[in-house]
């Protein structure tokens, strides 16, 4: 307490430890609100899938399982690079920190590019809800539309979180490149990591729930 106030210690805190614990707790509380934010969408998914299992299976079958799988691998890999970025900061390896952050950014960008191609394919196939929506199996046209409404709402919200994540990442790269983070002070990297992993977890649920339902009785034939 009697030591000089370190430059990275904000005025409202007494110690770096207090500052770090506050930041971590704050980030977790933010993630809790994110859980409930996405929770509303998952609730809608559960309700409508429970009512229209066939329409959901048929809709799911229109999604590209390969691209979905590739994106899953990309995102989990980006979580690994992000975890390594935090590790590098904790062990004072500044160059590695910058490298891992850049790698995380590139993987995140790759995810969004693939997502973009998926979206445009859906547009061409008239699978975007609205006046142009047209489902191959006419009998379940209306109900399949809800599947795609939720598909776009859920993956769209997830993609938006990715975009926000990439912006934050770019914003963190500057101080990282200047060597501002070290084993004493790396709250921003750590908190950003928590956010990034959370976005990954959302996708871990979205991938099976959207891409993999009813594959056995459609796909096996």
């Amino acid at each position: 307490m009697s030591t000089a106030h370190p430059a990275v210690l904000h005025h409202q805190f007494d110690t770096l430890e207090q500052q770090k614990e506050s930041a971590t707790l704050g980030m977790w509380l933010f993630l809790v609100q994110e859980i409930l934010f996405f929770g509303g969408l998952f609730m809608a998914y559960m309700l409508y899938r429970w009512r229209d299992p066939q329409a959901f299976a048929a809709g799911s079958h229109e999604l590209d399982i390969t691209l979905g799988l590739v994106n899953t691998v990309i995102l989990i890999a980006s979580s690994l690079t992000m975890a390594m970025a935090v590790h590098s900061a904790q062990t004072d390896k500044n160059k590695a920190l910058v490298r891992y952050l850049v790698a995380t950014g590139i993987l995140g960008l790759a995810f969004l590019v693939i997502k973009y191609f998926e979206y445009s394919a859906k547009w061409e196939h008239h699978l975007v809800p609205g006046p142009n929506f047209h489902f191959p199996e006419l009998a379940i046209d209306g109900r399949a539309e809800i599947f795609f409404s939720l598909y776009f709402a859920m993956t769209g919200m997830h993609a938006l979180h990715m975009v926000v994540g990439l912006v934050l990442l770019g914003w963190l790269l500057v101080p990282a490149a200047r060597g501002r983070f070290n084993s004493q002070y790396h709250n921003p990297i750590e908190c950003f990591g928590l956010y990034w992993h959370f976005v990954d977890i959302v996708w871990i649920f979205l991938f099976p729930l959207l891409y993999l339902i009813g594959r056995h009785y459609h796909g096996a034939v």
Partner: peptide
């Protein structure tokens, strides 16, 4: 923290 996000979505 627990309720408002549901209104938001």
């Amino acid at each position: 923290v627990l309720g408002t996000p549901v209104l938001a979505i």
